[in-house]
Computed example of a mutant assay.
Amino acid sequence: MILTDTHTHLYYEKDPELRDQLMQRCLENKVSRLFLPNVDSESIPLVFSLSEQYPENCFPMLGLHPCDVKDNFKEELTFIEQEIAQRKIYAIGEIGIDLHWDKTTLSIQQEAFRIQIAWAKKLDLPIVIHCREAFDEIFEIICELKDEKLRGIFHCFSGTLEQAEKVIDLGFYLGIGGVLTYKNSGLDKVVEQISLDYLVLETDSPYLTPVPFRGKTNESSYLIYVAQKLADIKQISIESLAEITTHNSKLVFGV
């Protein structure tokens, strides 16, 4: 069985010994494919340190997180673009719009999002979208820029069935994480009505820890609890669930 965590910040753990323990627990739980998004220029070395240590298991992505789109965002983008030119990456991400913390940066978040979508198209890479309280704003840009090259994942999807169908109609996958295990999230009712052909798994560790560890720090090894919950909803074995969602991840990332 091979489980794929399509979105994890496992590299945030900087202690080499503890990081190795995290990876070992992943492998013990059959989570053997991990996709690592940076968030800004400073996190790039951390992403590549881990992916170079575990080249068979960890796959880097690069982008500028919307919460890190500040007054200096053009300098950040220039630096990240230069890194992309010198590195092997598998997606542009995580990118998008976040209006939860700061609505005043919407215009520059939109600009940064458009710029990075252009990168992805030029390089023929998928994008990994961070969307928080900004579905309509993101949907507008995706519709505006949609062509045969624009594809990817709506990371940490927790929206409505209508929103899910819009994402799928645009040719994107839904990243399903720990929120699925939360009693009152309603996400279980949404994914129940969506084909597994459009779903991939993720943890977003160290955030959004699934039940039974909710309230504690998340880690990629806990993906198995998200997988089991989704398998239960779909009434299939976790092995079948792993096969389908890992296959989907390979279609997205090309590896």
Rank of each mutant, 00 (worst) to 15 (best):
T6E: 04
T8M: 02
L10G: 05
E13G: 07
K14S: 08
K14I: 05
P16N: 05
P16K: 02
E17Q: 13
L18Y: 04
R19G: 01
R19N: 03
Q24W: 00
Q24D: 10
L27S: 05
E28T: 14
E28F: 11
K30L: 07
F35M: 04
P37C: 01
P37K: 00
P37G: 00
V39Q: 08
P45H: 05
V47I: 04
F48N: 01
F48K: 02
F48L: 00
F48A: 04
S49L: 00
L50P: 01
P55H: 02
N57D: 05
C58W: 00
L64R: 01
L64F: 01
P66S: 01
V69C: 09
V69K: 08
F73L: 02
E75N: 15
E75F: 09
F79C: 06
I80S: 06
E81D: 10
E83P: 08
I84K: 09
A85Q: 14
Q86D: 13
Q86R: 12
Q86M: 11
Q86H: 10
Y90T: 04
G93W: 04
E94R: 07
I97M: 01
D98L: 08
L99I: 02
I108Y: 06
Q110Y: 02
Q110F: 03
E111A: 10
A112T: 07
A112L: 03
R114E: 11
I117P: 04
A118D: 15
A118E: 15
A118H: 14
A118T: 12
A118L: 11
A118C: 12
A120P: 11
K121H: 11
L123V: 07
D124C: 08
L125Q: 12
I127K: 06
V128L: 10
V128C: 10
H130V: 11
C131L: 04
E133G: 11
E133S: 12
A134E: 08
E137P: 03
F139I: 07
I142H: 08
L145E: 15
K149L: 12
H155R: 06
H155K: 09
F157Y: 11
G159E: 03
E162T: 12
A164P: 12
A164S: 13
K166Q: 15
I168A: 12
F172Q: 12
Y173T: 13
L174K: 14
G178Q: 14
V179T: 12
L180W: 07
Y182W: 14
S185T: 09
L187F: 00
L187R: 05
D188Y: 07
D188F: 08
K189Q: 11
V191R: 04
E192A: 13
L199Q: 15
L201D: 15
E202M: 09
T203F: 05
D204G: 01
S205R: 01
P206I: 03
P206L: 06
Y207K: 02
L208I: 06
P210V: 04
V211E: 14
F213Y: 13
R214E: 10
R214G: 14
K216H: 15
T217S: 15
N218R: 07
N218V: 09
L223D: 05
I224A: 14
A227Y: 01
Q228F: 04
Q228N: 11
K229I: 04
L230F: 06
L241W: 00
L241A: 03
A242S: 07
A242Y: 00
T246C: 12
N248H: 10
K250V: 13
L251W: 13
F253G: 09
G254C: 09
V255I: 13
